[in-house]
Write a protein that binds this DNA or RNA. Structure first.
Lengths: 97, 97
DNA sequence: GTCGTTTACGGGGATCGTAATAATA
DNA sequence: TATTATTACGATCCCCGTAAACGAC
């Protein structure tokens, strides 16, 4: 699993639709997005979406995964921001200055 | 940034050494690991490691990033486990049964 | 001089985009 | 029938491994 899977799934879950999530939020083609989601479901061993003609709906597992995925993604962004912030205070190491 | 970067960095930080982290924990070649770490530092805009002949040492930013990266990775694993657990309770959707 | 990291180069796998197909309401 | 997701296929990009070079103690 990679962060791409989380980003893709969150976008699909929020849009409730693979097509619009692909072109209006992720800027990738629908086939790519569809396969990434399939791969994620396969790795988890469970379906996350219920596909329909009017879009997609989350399964129970999908709803649970969505909540956790959002937190995980925010945590990653927090990690990057924290590192940048620390770097501004002490550009190299604690033994400088 | 991808989860691979977090996994690689954590292994290097814990081993204090690129070579041993590569072959004893990540099972990849050192050059691959070195480039991934470089790419991560470049994306963050700051150094995470101080390279030396006896291995590597963490910068201040590296220490901060390590703490957050560990949490993020655990959160991702928790997301997967939560989804699998939810799937065992309700295999498809809430409207089943 | 030895240990460890970095660059050079070629190969392989995964992702991607376009186009065609299937499925559902 | 119209909208959406999926499969087929070819191309591209990124990561990886081996080998050589660089740097620090």
């Amino acid at each position: 699993m990679e962060l791409r899977h989380l980003r893709y799934f969150i976008a699909v879950a929020e849009e409730g639709n693979l097509t619009v999530a692909a072109e209006k939020r992720l800027f990738v083609a629908q086939p790519s997005l569809s396969r990434q989601i399939r791969g994620l479901e396969q790795e988890l061993g469970t379906d996350l979406l219920i596909r329909g003609a009017r879009g997609v709906e989350l399964t129970a597992a999908g709803r649970v995964f969505l909540d956790h995925a959002r937190i995980a993604l925010l945590q990653v962004e927090a990690a990057a921001e924290a590192a940048r912030h620390a770097a501004r205070r002490k550009p190299r190491s604690s033994s400088d200055f």
